[in-house]
Simulated scan of single mutants.
Amino acid sequence: MTTDLHPRPRTRPARTGLVSRALLLRFVSIVGASIGFYLPLSVVPLYAKQAGSDSAAGLATVALLLATVACELVTPRLIARLGYRWALALGLVLLGTPTLVLTMSDDIWVIILVSVVRGAGFAITVVAGGAVTALLIPKDRRGEGLALVGVVSGVPTLLALPAGVWVAAHWGYTPVFVMTTVATLLALLPLPALPRRADTAQAGDHHGVVAGLRDPALTRPATIFAATTAAVGVLVTFLPLATSGQPAWVAASALLAQPAAATLARLFVGRLGDRHGPARLLVPGLVLSAAGMAALAATGTPSAVIGGALVFGVGFGALQNATLTLMYARVPSGGESAVSAIWNAAYDLGMAAGALGAGLVIASIGYPLTFALTAAAILPALGLAHRDRRP
């Protein structure tokens, strides 16, 4: 018997390829949907204000958000009937084409109706799109893949939101509404290359939205995420008002720093979560989010405001990736649409609740204390995060 004096070093198993042709084509529809939602997002309230009043502008945004949340929770049933391709196609059409109606009418009720239809379209798009994207990413690299998807959707979001306002100011509202329709309809082109349906045999009725809302393995990460999306609602709604005594670049820089930091953080934590488990990132993400919001309470100090937005963005980006990856890992094939619906509903409801809650108290306690209380409101979620440490 001979002994190998020079054993060969162990080699790591080859990593699964991340970016497939189907995922690249999915990126096209992601970009189109992001432009379709964010390009007119700030323009429609301006259009409504011109046609009616400040309250009319607010109604348009509220109608959009309420329709989005309501439809997100029923979209998995639609996907079960139509499949991913047709559901995503329907969502894109409802998201983009109604804006053409605004080129012909500025009646406030028409604007609200268009906002409702667009909200339904966006809900279908993000739920169906999120589910099919999860299918296209290898399970062992899902965190990294979702981070890459976050960048693909985040960059057009950062550009489209200010671009819509700029185009409306220089060329009028009609070009914005036409560009919105064109972008979303172009996003239909790659859909034939995407999967039609998931294998629902494993998921059955046990992983629909209603069942998912009863499952602590899904509701804990969703609740943790909602705690920070509520803080986002406070930040984006009230930070410009809180810093009105500062130069305009302070609020602009902070509002740019937060999503930029979140996008970059998702890239880093995605790979980290794949190696060590996404549940390990929940506590650091919550701590950073709370610390960033606490720093924003120093509204008279530009460095604290911008730095706080940056730190909050890092924590928020970590939680975006970790909670979604964790929830996808806890359902079998066919349960992706329910996860996408619950996670997106937590996002939208959290933002709305944060903005509404802060609006009720901010007049009596002021901006600094409101930001400090928002930071404190994140901390109870640490208890859920500690209970959720299993991968």
Rank of each mutant, 00 (worst) to 15 (best):
D140I: 06
V236C: 00
G308F: 05
P138Y: 01
Q246F: 08
A248Q: 09
F37K: 04
A381H: 14
A242P: 09
G273K: 02
L73Y: 00
L158E: 13
V287G: 09
A260E: 09
D199H: 08
G143V: 07
R10N: 07
T133L: 12
L59N: 11
A211N: 02
P156S: 09
R15S: 13
I342V: 15
I362V: 14
L286H: 03
L272C: 04
Y347R: 00
I112P: 08
T243R: 10
L324Q: 13
L39Q: 04
G245T: 06
F122S: 04
S333H: 15
H276N: 13
V287E: 05
L100G: 06
A56P: 10
V114Y: 12
L5S: 12
A345C: 11
L267S: 12
T11C: 04
D388T: 15
T229F: 06
F312V: 01
R142Q: 07
A254D: 08
L296I: 15
F312E: 04
D54K: 07
V339L: 06
V283A: 15
H170M: 13
A80K: 12
L161Y: 00
L235M: 12
A295Y: 01
P284T: 06
G350F: 02
G83Q: 02
I30D: 02
R387G: 12
P240M: 11
A168I: 02
L373R: 00
A131F: 11
A33H: 03
V311C: 06
E72L: 15
R21W: 12
V178W: 09
A242Y: 07
P192A: 14
G357Q: 09
G130D: 05
D199P: 10
R266D: 07
L148M: 04
G273D: 10
S333P: 11
